[in-house]
Design a binder for these strands. Structure first.
Length: 798
DNA sequence: ATCTATCGGGG
DNA sequence: GTGTACGATAGAT
């Protein structure tokens, strides 16, 4: 009855049955049947690192004597591996129950002669994919034995794994998403108190859309009763059986809310492919659903550097998925009103439909990249998108370590000490015409490869080594006798990426083959570029402060030398930051600089962009420029956040629009002055002055007197209920004392009480200057009356 | 200058 | 589930 099965791995989990762990591999076969493969043979293990001169026989006896019956130690084996690049003596300890590893880690590491317990902090299901070299989203082949279908799994077929799992070489370049069923969903909740409370405020709408059906499904509550739509939602997921469930910020809102509501009705949110399993909060604040990938698209949006406000409507607008002016927009605090007003209810329904359509549209943009991140890093797609770049790289490093029989260091918490960073030149303030920006290609990874940087090659006093690379300034030395672990990984990435780029040339730009490879090379680049930051990340297993310090020192040296060379041949340098230099756009001299850097320094540098005009203030890392195609580039711009007044947010978005559309900062100044006048004349409605801030703990627990805590205390005094999680809306009123003491709940205040100076100085002006300072505009220019001749006319292109 | 609290996305 | 982010900023002290 044995046969070979080709399957695509989607997710991995495990369960304990009869006191033994069973690995569950969730996937689909070539006929798109949903399959569950089980492996009953895998057991948890970890290593004990021994002192060099320890008596391993004695230690082995000690280990066995500490075996517990509820999860016995079933094997111990002395192994010769390496640790941080040096030979290491270790004992591999295998037990039965994954949860017991934590306990054994403690009890066994106290044995004399045992230096440390290693690899005891790796999640069991991840350990499986690590050891079997499995990458979610890839296709595999394996010998299997069909199992009689169990009733407690919602899959088409179940198999028991019987043999080695190998990659299906014929399906390396197929689109991993082809044929997978995707479900987008979004909930709207009733929020009469503005901050919705899941213990009393119902879910009023659930909108759902699948990738294989054009119709949008809208589940509507009966008045204020949402029990029926929750049931319908669960039934729908089970009936349609999506492989991927997507939402926008559903990990922080929709799932927790749905879970609270269903608890209230004692409904089991049984939406996974394992019967009776509910969405489970897991690593990175992510919810895992058995057998399905729950992907939060907000995680992708976070990585968009080009836009600052990452709300669903903004992101969908920016990416051309759904223009803002072609959809219904409703302020969040008005949702309850729209629901209660039967005439407005249809507008709210359309709003919900627009949201879910945007969400599915974004999935088409983002998931191809997410799938490749899984293919490269080895983390399931729902986890990899939620993880930080350093964590993604680490997942891959762990696989590489496993292949090399290198013991993995533990994840520990460190207080990281800061070190000198990159060179950032003081920009030459003012307007400069025709400026070219030269960029080093992957500067930090290149430094790591060239100088063989890594924790394993870092030399300590007295270490023997023939060829040494010494970093300038900091003087850390790295041995070049053998390749560093990090270098091997990076070189593999570089080679892989250049092969992909070569293969891409065989296809038409925009074709599905081309796009797939393009997403893959992007995923590799993301991991490679995380390498420097990884070494300086406090939680990194291969943390190496000296490495990070040396890398930036080499980087500073590199850029200073380049700048000096440019100056020596008479090329004007305006500014430099980390891995880029801004120079006069003199083609001939730039070519000389590029040649010199390539030949003498042996690094790659290229022209990244050319500004027709660029404007610098004294501030580093913040400038505005006019590109050759007429676009305005504002670099380093920080948007005001949600804890600013509506007025401040409105001022900023209007200024951004004025500048990007008219290209004239003078118009923006007039606008700001007009707003200030309006405020002084009481023409701004109070609603726009409210500042919303969340209480993160109970009011008594606040030690510091913050404005929102002060306002919350006042609310409590007047009989309102405030708890952790409440959003407090306050305004600042006239008077003396600290700002906190002048904070009042917005509904207890008249417009005439408002401290207009606070709003001018702390809200309108700072918010406006976040953009206008790039154009040389100062606070003085914005105060009514002052007439400053314009430094900033430079964008009035003639 | 240092410490404490909060934001983000969602509704 | 062998486990829980991060970098920036305002206001108080």
């Amino acid at each position: 009855m044995e046969s070979t099965l080709n399957f695509q791995l989607l997710d991995v989990s495990y369960e304990i049955v009869n006191n033994t762990p069973i690995i569950n591999l969730w996937g689909r076969d070539l006929n798109n049947k949903k399959v569950l493969l089980i492996d009953t043979t895998f057991r948890p293990y970890f290593y004990l690192l021994l002192d060099k001169d320890s008596n391993s026989e004695k230690i082995k006896q000690e280990i066995l004597s500490r075996s517990k019956t509820k999860s016995p130690i079933i094997n111990i084996e002395e192994v010769n591996m390496s640790y941080i690049g040096r030979p290491a003596k270790a004992i591999k300890v295998t037990t039965t129950i994954p949860e017991s590893v934590r306990e054994y880690r403690e009890t066994l590491s106290s044995i004399e002669g045992v230096k440390d317990a290693l690899e005891a902090d790796i999640r069991f299901s991840f350990r499986y994919t690590l050891d079997k070299n499995l990458y979610p989203m890839r296709w595999y082949k394996v010998n299997v034995k069909p199992l009689e279908k169990k009733t407690n799994y919602r899959v088409d077929e179940m198999y028991e794994i019987n043999g080695e799992i190998t990659e299906d070489e014929n399906r390396v370049n197929v689109n991993p998403l082809d044929g997978l069923k995707i479900m987008a969903f979004d909930i709207e909740v009733y929020n009469p108190q503005r901050t919705p409370d899941p213990s009393k405020d119902p879910i009023i709408l659930i909108s759902i859309k699948f990738n294989d059906n054009n119709d949008t499904i809208l589940l509507e509550a009966k008045g204020h009763d949402d029990s029926e739509i929750i049931h319908k939602f669960i039934e729908l997921i089970r009936k349609e059986d999506p492989d991927i469930i997507i939402g926008y910020n559903q990990n922080k809102f929709d799932w927790p809310y749905l879970i609270e509501r269903s608890k209230l009705y004692k409904i089991k949110l049984d939406v996974g492919r394992k019967v009776d399993s509910v969405p489970n909060p897991s690593v990175f604040g992510h919810y895992s659903i058995q057998g399905r990938l729950n992907v939060d698209l907000y995680d992708f949006a976070e990585e968009l550097q080009e836009i600052k406000v990452k709300s669903l409507d903004e992101v969908a607008d920016y990416l051309g998925v759904k223009p803002k002016d072609k959809r219904v927009n409703i302020d969040w605090w008005l949702i309850a009103q729209y629901w209660d007003d039967i005439e407005k209810r249809n507008t709210l329904k359309q709003y919900s439909i627009d949201d879910v359509e945007s969400t599915l549209g974004l999935a088409y943009k983002f998931l191809p990249f997410g799938a490749q991140l899984s293919i490269i890093s080895g983390l399931p797609m729902d986890q990899v998108v939620a993880a930080s770049v350093a964590f993604r790289l680490e997942a891959r490093l762990m696989r590489e370590a496993k292949k090399k029989s290198e013991l993995m260091p533990n994840r520990i918490e460190r207080n990281i000490e800061s070190y000198t960073g990159a060179v950032v030149l003081k920009p030459e303030p003012g307007i400069h015409e025709n400026v070219a920006v030269l960029d080093f290609a992957s500067m930090y990874p290149s430094i790591m490869v060239k100088y063989n940087v890594g924790p394993d090659t870092l030399l300590k006093d007295g270490d023997a080594c023939k060829v040494r690379n010494k970093a300038p300034e900091v003087n850390h030395e790295f041995c070049a006798d053998n390749p560093a672990f990090m270098r091997l990984v990076l070189e593999r990435f570089l080679k892989w990426r250049s092969e992909i780029k070569k293969a891409m040339k065989l296809y038409k730009e925009g074709s599905s083959e081309y796009n797939l490879l393009n997403e893959r090379q992007k995923a590799i680049k993301v991991l490679a570029n995380a390498s420097y930051g990884y070494l300086g990340w406090g939680a990194a297993r291969w943390y190496c402060r000296s490495c990070a310090e040396a890398i930036t020192a080499w980087g500073r040296d590199l850029i200073s030398q380049s700048i000096n060379f440019a100056k020596s041949i008479g090329l004007k340098v305006y500014y430099g930051d980390t891995d880029s230099i801004f120079v006069d756009n003199n083609k001939e001299k730039i070519e000389q600089v590029i040649n010199w850097i390539t030949k003498v320094l042996e690094f790659d540098i290229k022209i990244d962009k050319i500004y027709k005009r660029v404007f610098f203030t004294e501030a580093k890392k913040r400038y505005a420029g006019l590109l050759e195609d007429g676009k305005i580039d504002i670099v380093g711009f920080e948007a005001v956040r949600g804890d600013w007044s509506e007025l401040a947010k409105e001022v900023q978005s209007n200024i951004a629009e004025l500048i990007l559309k008219t290209g004239n900062p003078k118009k923006a100044i007039e606008y700001v002055k007009a707003v200030i006048e309006d405020l002084k004349n009481g023409k701004i409605v109070l609603d726009k002055l409210i500042i919303w801030k969340t209480l993160t703990k109970e009011i008594e627990q606040y030690e510091a007197e913050t404005p929102h805590a002060y306002a919350a205390k006042l609310m409590e005094k007047y009989g309102y209920k405030v708890t952790a999680g409440s959003k407090i809306g306050f305004v600042i009123i006239k008077g003396s004392g600290s700002i906190s003491k002048k904070a009042r709940p917005y509904f207890m205040v008249k417009e005439s009480d408002i401290d207009t100076n606070y709003y001018i100085d702390k809200q309108i002006i700072p918010s406006a200057l976040r953009i206008l300072s790039y154009f040389g505009i100062t606070e003085k220019d914005l105060k009514v009356g002052s007439k400053q001749p314009s430094l900033f006319d430079f964008l009035d292109s003639s």
